[in-house]
């Protein structure tokens, strides 16, 4: 146990270091990209530009801006104001966006996990039968179909033609279509992953031993096979969850969902520096944490894995 604790601490320190590197690289790359937050089709006067730069501290040397930013974020958790959406703080924009994206992502990810594991196990246990082939064909289609096609297809069929569900994420039941769109790819992927890993496990010696010992089929599957075949699924699930909750631009655009993905992309287009930094930090932190959690879950599922 103490080994695990030491490991977790080591990984946490590494995680902070990783986020810091991401912050630093993003900060300087972002400022090196041509353009600026106050550029528009209609140029502002030099006086106005100077006033804006002074107001947001952009007139200071870059290195000074960098240290000011780090200090504000790490000591006061202050991500600063948005340069484009005047009057709004970055943290509020992120909180609003994350609220929707997280809801969408968590539901989509866990549905994908539940459905994927079941379908994958069924396919593995009924190997080469009709049901297995059927599942494999469907999942191959979903894995290879990009979400903008899937989303548009669902939109046209269910929202425009049949008018069963709204096309707009803000409406009641509006999140159903985006959740399905988001969940299809991971569901298909998890199904395939579970199937192949289950097949692998079912061929192992210890399963044969269990069978020879007369252990019941159910017990073999749930007690031995499933647990061990979930390792690759866990590896995939952690980072997938992080990606999916940090917003999918495509799905958010197609269904007008007010998530964080759109805010992130728009912040880059607008060169809204504080918002770029804020979203990057949150995104990086989530991914790092999810990776860590899935590594630890590994160990729990399979004690043979050495966390050192």
């Amino acid at each position: 146990m103490s080994k695990t604790t030491a490991y977790i601490i080591k990984r946490l320190v590494l995680a902070i270091l990783t986020v810091w590197v991401v912050v630093t690289v993003t900060f300087f790359v972002m400022h090196a990209v041509p353009g600026g937050p106050f550029l528009g089709e209609k140029a502002v006067t030099p006086e106005v530009l100077a006033a804006l730069e002074a107001k947001y501290g952009l007139d200071k040397p870059l290195i000074e801006q960098y240290f000011t930013y780090l200090r504000d974020v790490f000591t006061r958790f202050d991500f600063g104001p948005s340069l484009k959406q005047r009057g709004q703080d970055v943290i509020d924009i992120i909180a609003t966006g994350m609220k929707t994206s997280a809801k969408l992502g968590v539901i989509a990810a866990f549905s994908a996990l539940a459905v994927g594991v079941v379908l994958g196990s069924v396919a593995a246990l009924r190997r080469n039968r009709f049901i297995d082939k059927f599942i494999m064909v469907i999942t191959t289609a979903f894995v290879s179909m990009p979400s903008f096609i899937m989303g548009s297809l669902l939109l046209i069929v269910f929202a425009v033609k049949l008018q069963l569900l709204p096309a707009n994420g803000a409406a009641a039941n509006g999140l159903i279509l985006p959740i399905i769109t988001l969940a299809l790819y991971p569901t298909a992927y998890i199904t395939r992953l579970t199937r192949s890993s289950m097949l692998d496990v079912l061929g192992q010696d210890y399963i044969r031993t269990a069978k020879a010992k007369g252990v019941s089929g159910m017990k073999i599957i749930f007690g031995h096979a499933l647990k061990n075949s979930l390792i690759p699924v866990i590896t995939y699930f952690g980072p997938m969850l992080a990606y999916i909750v940090t917003g999918s631009l495509v799905v958010e655009r197609i269904f007008s969902v007010p998530g964080i993905g759109r805010a992130f992309v728009n912040s880059i287009i607008n060169r809204d520096y504080p918002l770029i930094m804020g979203t990057t930090i949150i995104l990086a932190a989530l991914i790092v944490i999810m990776n860590l959690v899935s590594d630890i879950l590994y160990k729990v599922v399979d004690p043979r894995i050495n966390l050192e």
Binding site: A95, T96, T100, A102, K103, A172
Partner: peptide, 10 residues
């Protein structure tokens, strides 16, 4: 992450 607000029941 989303605790600040009530569900977006729209």
């Amino acid at each position: 992450c989303g605790k600040t607000a009530a569900p977006a029941e729209t």
